[in-house]
Structures are given as structure tokens and as C-alpha cells.
Design a protein around this nucleic acid. Structure first.
Lengths: 155, 155
DNA sequence: ATGCTGTGTATATGCTATATATACACTTAA
DNA sequence: TTAAGTGTATATATAGCATATACACAGCAT
């Protein structure tokens, strides 16, 4: 399968990557990383409602994972009403996809901040210290201390 | 084993719980929940350096998990230099345990905030909206929208 | 010393989610 | 009709989580 991918790439070598590369070592499962990546593309408008998503095989080849892993990710996105699948045709961004994807991210942001504040308080940080931390991270978004998440199957 | 536990409790029914109850349904693995719980007790000063932690069996009975799960949690805490174990004697908070536990929580708070800001931005939120969200959650810490985490083994 | 009772330790086993390869079914257009 | 694209379904391997059971060490009462 990978050989086929390489062959195809030789014919279209400069196509823009649809999603950032994923890795078993990165936080979160592979399919979860795909879910997050697609949500990012949709939330930021690079995939508009009605637009076709990459096919299972195309995305699997690009991300070097199996077709099934992509399928699983798309199933999750369909469950959230962000995309819909049509057998024989493809997968597309649903009409409310952009709104739902952004809302999901807003909710997650709130959830993460709530947990962060709880952790900070348990560490003995004052309200002022917590706000200072937020401001510091707001100014330097590049220092991406990627959160490790919980629950591990990091093979 | 659980029968024994119930029997013992009948003799000492009002002993304060060492840790809050944990659950397979809660976010994070059981052993991770124990790690977090112990870190909270240490960070907030209820377990001072040198103080003995509950024994494997005592904690296992209280939390209704197996001895091995507690062992695993304590191993993780020892790896972080927060506690140390002495065979035949027990497990104790290390001298630098409080500082390390708090530092771990501060680091996690920073990591979570960084991820939250990233998510919020991807959702299209402005800097002002993000700050407003932080302030709202700072005022209402009770509305604990517990973050679901990543990676799943929720049996 | 001896044995009892507490502590932590080690080995082997069942379960579940993740990720996979392979084969199948549907849609469109040549 | 057939070819080439799409999504779908089944069976399998792996690794982490959680467990029961049996073992080894420390302190203390006898």
C-alpha cells in the first residue's frame, strides 16, 4: 500500500498536505488525532460545508495509517454531526459542520481551562498567579507545551 | 476481600476517607486517578513530608480496587520523586514531595491552559473572549465541567 | 528465637480498546 | 458492462489496564 502511495506522489509531488502528520507517540490515539485535525480544518474554514473530505484511502496513505483508522475517525465526526458519509460517493462537511466543530472546540477550551484552574489552585497558586500565567501563555502561543492527556495506550 | 473490608468498616465506621472515591467511568485510568488524588493530598498539605501513606491494602479496600492498581499508582509517584517505598515498612512522602507535587500541578496547569488557548483560537475566539472565559470560570469554580481527557479504555 | 501481623513485591491471567489486513458493496462515468 | 473511485464489514494481532494469588521483608509480642 505504501509503495502505491509513493508512486502516486511521484506524479503529484507538491500537493498540499491535508492534515498535519500524526504519530502513535503523540498524545491521543491515532484516530483521535485525525478527529482533532479535521475539526481544525473545518473550524478554521479550510473545509467549508458541502466540501468533500479526503477519501479514506487518500488520508490513510497521507498519514501512514490504515484505512480503518480513518474510518473510525470519520465515524466519530459523523456522530457529532460535523460530517456525513455517502457510500460510493464520499464524505462531506455537513451544513452545520462549521458551527458544530467550533462549538465543540469552545466547549473543550472551557473544559480544559476549568481543569487547569483546579490544578493550579491545588498547587497553591493564587488567582493573580493564575491570571498572570494565562496572560503569559496568551502572548507566547508558540511555546506549545502540548498537554499529555490521560489514559495511555502509547504502544 | 470486599467482605473483609465491610467487616472492618463495621468496627471503625466513621474514619475519614483518605481519598475521594474513584471510578472506572471517571476520566483517566484508575491508577491515574489515584496518582492525582495522592498529589492533591500532598500538594494541599494534608500529607506532609515523612508522613506515611495508606498501605496498599488499606487504600485498595477503601477505593474498591485491587492491591496491584494501588501499587502501580505508587510506583508512578515514586518515579516522580514524590514518595518512597520501604519493603516491610510502608510508603512515605519524600522530603521534596510537597514541592515536587505542587510543581507537577503547576506544570500541568500551564500545559492545560496552553492547549485550551489553542483550542479556543481554532474555534475562532478572540483574545478578549478567551480572557472573559477564564474570568467566568475563575468566579465559578463549582461548575466543574470535568475534562474528558484523551485516550480511552472506559470499559 | 519464634511466630504473628503488618508492610511492600512478583508472577501469571482475563479483558478491552486500538490498529490492522483483507474482502465486500455501492456510485459514477467511460 | 466494466473500471475505478467511494464507503463498509469481518476477523486478527497487540498492548495497556486491572485483577487474584503467592511470595518476601520489617517490627513486635511472646
Amino acid at each position: 500500500m505504501y509503495m502505491l502511495y509513493i508512486h502516486l506522489m511521484a506524479h503529484a509531488p507538491h500537493k498540499r498536505l491535508i492534515l498535519r502528520p500524526i504519530s502513535p507517540a503523540a498524545p491521543g490515539t491515532l484516530y483521535q488525532q485525525i478527529v482533532d485535525g479535521v475539526k481544525r480544518e473545518i473550524s478554521e474554514g479550510r473545509l467549508a460545508p458541502g466540501a468533500p473530505l479526503p477519501s479514506f484511502r487518500a488520508l490513510a496513505e497521507e498519514l501512514l495509517v490504515s484505512l480503518i483508522t480513518v474510518k473510525r475517525a470519520y465515524e466519530e465526526l459523523e456522530r457529532e454531526g460535523i460530517i456525513y458519509r455517502k457510500q460510493g460517493l464520499g464524505t462531506f462537511v455537513s451544513e452545520e459542520g462549521t458551527a458544530r466543530s467550533r462549538e465543540a472546540k469552545r466547549a473543550q477550551a472551557a473544559s480544559l481551562i476549568a481543569e487547569a484552574l483546579r490544578e493550579g489552585r491545588e498547587a497553591g497558586m493564587t488567582e493573580e498567579e493564575l491570571l498572570k500565567l494565562v496572560h503569559r501563555l496568551l502572548d507566547q502561543p508558540a511555546t506549545s507545551t502540548k498537554h499529555a492527556g490521560r489514559r495511555g495506550n502509547p504502544f
